[in-house]
Write a protein that binds this DNA or RNA. Structure first.
Lengths: 131, 131
DNA sequence: CCTAAATAGTACCAATTCAGTACAGTATTA
DNA sequence: TAATACTGTACTGAATTGGTACTATTTAGG
């Protein structure tokens, strides 16, 4: 089945939860709000942080908050944060994999077009739209 | 990484190969043309046949041919043939899975919009475009 | 300055999915 | 009727995924 990781799905839920956070919101509270297990939220937040989608504050009263307005963060951003570069096949330009058939492949480079179309579609939907 | 199955990738290569086939083309020949292992081609053709994307002819001089003009078969068709319904998350309407958080999920139903956008993008690229 | 709260990093494991293979059966044509 | 090629099903090793555990580090507040 063609789908995103479950973790990516969770990540959107987390991001939507953070829309309503004025202060930094700790992982534990996010877990309570969303029903996603605490350790899993914890793991997710690391990915979202590294991608620059959320800010973190350590210590007492610490937690996470959105790094940008909800209508500036897209589904494409979230997918990339959790799963890495969007590359439908290994012959797409920014793929981390390497295609072993590359040299004689009949569709060489053609997937770039498909990939671009999908990314464009994913960039059109923002966290604000998911709320 | 957000990507399609390798088999889906292979399927597009197979479909592109069939574009140049006047007569029915046997799996063995497709395997030779594309470099994809014969047993794998065989498996693929079954999926493509069941989805109605190719026609089959048994016996001597048998093989496969496209069921429709190359510019009428889309990437979305191929993905669905190999991987089943396109459902980015289990809370998308036509998903085969069932979401366990459904009852209290904050993004309930919102993924339908994303899914639709992606499917639309995938329907815009045809086998003819990949040739 | 010390303690509790909360993030940060790394590593691990069970379960599922995927890619590839094998084989017995059926239809078709020469 | 024999050779060719599709059809259906089932299996296996390898890779990925989802989820967990643990230790280290940072910060606020008394």
């Amino acid at each position: 089945m063609f789908k995103v990781n479950k973790l990516t799905d969770y990540a959107t839920v987390v991001m939507v939860d953070l829309v309503s956070a004025d202060l930094a919101r700790p992982s534990q509270k996010i877990a309570n709000n969303t029903g996603i297990p605490y350790p899993t939220v914890n793991k997710l937040m690391k990915d979202l942080l590294h991608a620059g989608l959320v800010r973190s504050h350590r210590g007492i009263n610490g937690g996470y908050s959105l790094a940008s307005p909800a209508n500036k963060i897209t589904i494409a951003d979230i997918i990339q944060a959790v799963e890495g570069p969007i590359a439908l096949t290994s012959c797409v330009n920014n793929s981390l994999d390497k295609c072993t058939y590359e040299d004689f492949c009949a569709v060489q480079g053609r997937w770039n077009r498909v990939n671009k179309a999908v990314v464009t579609a994913l960039k059109k939907v923002t966290v604000a739209d998911m709320t």
